[in-house]
């Protein structure tokens, strides 16, 4: 057994193509980013090597930490929303009528590109013409919240479309995971008199725990480098109240021509992701898991 399954040539054959691809297209840029982070450079003019100056500036840059805090909040919300997605998936997996249709419908927002989603939600959030505020006004609320222009709530307002957009992504992963749960195990539990709720929580949930852990990492890392919708809908504003790490990086590198500093932010983002992933691994690994 072991000899067949540890054939070096086969392993090399399976792993090298992909490794080569990410080596060229991800690791080269990654190393370059770290290096650019040590330059005083606008992207095309003269380069000046300044060592770790950008990174030490970053440490003291309150704007960076503010954006990092916003990214963490987003990560927290996204992770919490996993429970909601999981609950929906468990319900849909419990053989109720129309589950397939519901699942398909829940995935629709994911098909839309960010341009469309941003347009839609800008309309929903519009301070006086928007759907939410029209509803609130008709309910007698005099000064409904200014969703995207009030610095105190903009961050929370913009989480809503993000969480909504990603519902499909996770529901579809959980659907596949739940599909993998052997029918016999569920049947056995049913015969033992377990209620659907017990089956979901005691039988199915433990069996998909490895997938769930993966999705936690995906949600956290995805949130930490999230960019699209925030950039289109608020551009990080107002008064930078919705600035996240990736939008801050983009602004520095591409709008303000501080490519060196922007790269330093990008690299710091990567390091933060690494630390977070490592922590998650520490918190969730059990001995029979592959460590990731």
């Amino acid at each position: 057994m072991k000899t067949v399954m540890s054939n070096k040539w086969t392993i090399a054959l399976y792993v090298w193509p992909a490794l080569l691809l990410i080596g060229c297209l991800i690791y080269i840029p990654l190393i370059m980013t770290g290096y650019y982070g040590m330059l005083e450079w606008n992207g095309f003019g003269p380069r000046e090597f300044i060592g770790l100056e950008n990174y030490s500036r970053l440490m003291q840059d309150s704007m960076f930490w503010k954006s990092a805090y916003h990214s963490f909040l987003l990560g927290l919300f996204s992770t919490a929303s996993l429970l909601l997605y999981l609950a929906v998936s468990l319900i849909l997996a419990s053989k109720i009528k129309g589950a397939e249709l519901f699942r398909k419908i829940y995935l629709i927002p994911m098909l839309l590109s960010s341009v469309a989603i941003a347009q839609l939600w800008s309309k929903i959030f519009d301070p006086s013409n928007g759907m939410i505020n029209r509803l609130l006004i008709s309910l007698g609320v005099e000064n409904p919240p200014l969703w995207l222009s009030d610095p105190n709530i903009v961050l929370f307002a913009i989480f809503i479309p993000i969480i909504w957009q990603y519902a499909g992504f996770y529901i579809i992963i959980y659907a596949a995971a739940l599909k993998n749960v052997p029918e016999e195990v569920v049947e056995a539990a049913r015969i033992d008199g377990a209620t659907p709720l017990q089956i979901a929580l005691r039988v199915k949930l433990p069996l998909i725990s490895s997938v769930f852990k993966v999705t936690i990492v995906l949600a956290l890392v995805g949130s930490l480098k999230y960019f699209d919708l925030i950039y289109v809908m608020t551009g990080g504003g107002p008064n930078r109240a919705s600035e996240v790490m990736a939008s801050y990086m983009y602004g520095e590198a591409f709008t303000k021509y501080n490519f060196g500093y922007g790269s330093a932010i990008g690299f710091a983002l990567l390091v933060i992701c690494l630390i977070v992933t490592w922590l998650i691994r520490k918190l969730t690994t059990s001995k029979d898991d592959y460590q990731y």
Binding site: A246, S263, L270
Partner: peptide
């Protein structure tokens, strides 16, 4: 780690 690099840095 490939998951963690922000697109615009690349």
């Amino acid at each position: 780690i490939g998951l963690m690099i922000p697109l615009h840095s690349t």
